Simulated scan of single mutants.
Amino acid sequence: MTSASEASGATGTPAGDVVVELTDVHAGYLPGVNILNGANLVARKGELIGIIGPNGAGKSTLLKAIFGMVNVRAGDITVNGESILGLKADKLVQRGVAFVPQTNNVFPSLTIEENLQMGLYQNPKAYAERLEFVTGIFAELGQRLRQRAGSLSGGERQMVAMSRALMMDPTVLLLDEPSAGLSPVRQDDAFIRVSDINKAGVTTIMVEQNARRCLQICDRGYVLDQGRDAHEGSGRDLLNDPKVIGLYLGTLGTDA
């Protein structure tokens, strides 16, 4: 397995294709306490990146660090070659970064349509065009635009949350546990939708507890442990790596 810094130049991919890069990032919520302890990650244009690891490894914290929700104390995070450290959420959205949290990710009192409109508040004139794109992936939402989000199932809410994030035509989509709390059938549907989003051209970084399923669909994966990237490789390579199997896949996401 290679480190993230080695991977950034190992494939010969032009540097201009790098969408998101984390370099030796240290970050945490409380003063003097880091959750990330030198994390590295590279996501290139069009890639689907999976992040797995044990509970408390810093997976969700990594996404929140990218989206400016955690204090980054050292290292750098760039999007399209420019540092985004210190930027607020609205500025990050303008830079093409979209984030779907694990919970509380829809406005339950609003309709599906109103939720989608909230996702496009910075560019409302593009609503018709973006709605066509989103309903091309989530066709059922286009038939239920007037339904309140609070009446939807967990899987349906997840669709609305991802759709709202896509309304601003993001460069990169950050997904925190998209299958969490869903039934097995809905989990499979969530992973299919994530693949569809990525195939539509959106670079995607996904944190997942269902490690096996995540690695099955991602181009490359990172295994986080104690706030560091312990392993990195293609999804297939990680699925078949004895160390990853013994240390992580044995207790994570046992669904094949």
Score class of each variant (00 low, 15 high):
3 S>D: 10
5 S>N: 12
8 S>L: 10
9 G>V: 14
12 G>N: 13
16 G>K: 14
17 D>C: 06
23 T>S: 11
23 T>V: 13
33 V>P: 01
39 A>M: 08
40 N>K: 03
42 V>T: 11
45 K>E: 11
50 G>C: 13
60 S>H: 09
61 T>C: 02
67 F>M: 03
74 A>Y: 07
76 D>I: 03
76 D>M: 05
77 I>N: 04
80 N>A: 15
82 E>G: 10
87 L>Q: 15
88 K>Y: 05
89 A>T: 14
91 K>R: 15
99 F>N: 02
101 P>I: 12
103 T>V: 13
104 N>K: 12
105 N>H: 13
108 P>M: 14
109 S>F: 14
110 L>P: 01
112 I>E: 02
112 I>M: 07
117 Q>K: 15
118 M>E: 08
119 G>C: 04
119 G>P: 01
122 Q>G: 10
124 P>W: 15
129 E>A: 15
130 R>D: 04
132 E>A: 15
137 I>M: 02
140 E>Q: 10
140 E>S: 06
142 G>S: 01
144 R>C: 07
145 L>P: 00
146 R>Q: 11
148 R>C: 09
158 Q>G: 06
161 A>S: 04
163 S>A: 15
165 A>C: 05
169 D>L: 11
173 L>R: 05
174 L>S: 01
177 E>N: 08
183 S>C: 08
184 P>Q: 10
185 V>T: 13
185 V>R: 14
187 Q>G: 04
188 D>H: 14
191 F>Q: 00
192 I>M: 01
194 V>F: 01
194 V>Y: 03
195 S>F: 00
198 N>H: 06
199 K>D: 02
200 A>W: 04
201 G>N: 07
201 G>L: 05
204 T>S: 04
208 E>H: 04
215 L>Y: 10
216 Q>Y: 07
221 G>T: 07
223 V>I: 03
235 G>F: 08
236 R>F: 10
241 D>T: 06
242 P>C: 12
245 I>N: 01
248 Y>P: 01
249 L>N: 05
253 G>F: 06
256 A>D: 15
